[in-house]
């Protein structure tokens, strides 16, 4: 028996509504890919123009924190998937637990990221505000750090939105206000979470790994 709240009035049935919600999220993800795509194009251009500055600058990034964050975010994708799976099976407690874990892991990521920004500030690696780079070609290294802050900053904004969404859904599921088994909410939320994760998988090698082999 379906929950009456699950069906919005413009749709004929739940199948149509699910289809619309999932298609909508996939299309939104396509726009997200182009948001980051434009920035990565900029990255590629300057990486090609100033490889020396790029390697020198990337070697100064906090690779330990970056790697730990990669592990944390990948794990959160697993817990997100578990939440979606539990939702399909109608296991409310499992959904809330998995969503709680997901949000916690996301918060850990942001915490570590904030600490990393703090270290960057300490090392005078913040373009425009406090930048003093000793190694090769500081002018172009500043562009690297500008892109670094821009890319990770936009990513962090996305992750913050994602954590907020997870917490809202967690609250709705827990209080029984969301027909999570019939609606596409968990699937759509999962898609968005995985996108945030996938973006990071591209950012990690681009930011932390250049120049490390030398």
């Amino acid at each position: 028996m379906s929950d009456p709240q699950a069906l919005a009035e413009q749709f004929d049935d739940l199948g149509q509504q699910r289809h619309a919600a999932e298609l909508g999220m996939w299309i939104f993800l396509a726009t997200e890919a182009l948001f980051f795509g434009g920035l990565l194009l900029g990255y590629a251009v300057y990486r090609h123009l100033y490889p020396e500055a790029w390697f020198a600058a990337a070697r100064e990034t906090e690779i330990l924190i970056g790697t730990a964050n990669t592990a944390i975010l990948l794990t959160s994708s697993l817990t997100m998937w578990l939440a979606v799976r539990a939702g399909e099976e109608g296991r409310r407690d499992a959904v809330t637990l998995a969503l709680g874990l997901t949000a916690t892991l996301g918060a850990f990521f942001l915490g570590l990221k904030a600490y990393e920004y703090y270290l960057d500030w300490d090392n005078s690696l913040v373009p425009g505000l406090r930048f003093a780079f000793e190694k090769a070609d500081p002018e172009h290294a500043e562009i690297f750090y500008y892109l670094y802050f821009f890319l990770t900053g936009v990513h962090a904004v996305h992750l913050t939105v994602a954590i907020t969404a997870v917490l809202v859904v967690l609250f709705l599921v827990r209080t029984g206000r969301l027909a999570y088994q019939q609606s596409a909410t968990l699937t759509v939320l999962g898609l968005y979470w995985h996108l945030v994760d996938v973006v990071w998988i591209f950012l990690y090698p681009l930011i932390y790994l250049p120049g490390r082999s030398q």
């Binding site: 182009l34 425009g128 500008y146």
Partner: peptide, 23 residues
């Protein structure tokens, strides 16, 4: 597919103007 790219380009312009970082 086109609008997100403009959004990012304008965001870069805004930050470059505010912070004086030269992208």
């Amino acid at each position: 597919l086109a609008t997100p790219v403009l959004a990012m380009a304008l965001l870069l312009i805004m930050i470059e103007r505010l912070l004086g970082v030269g992208i």
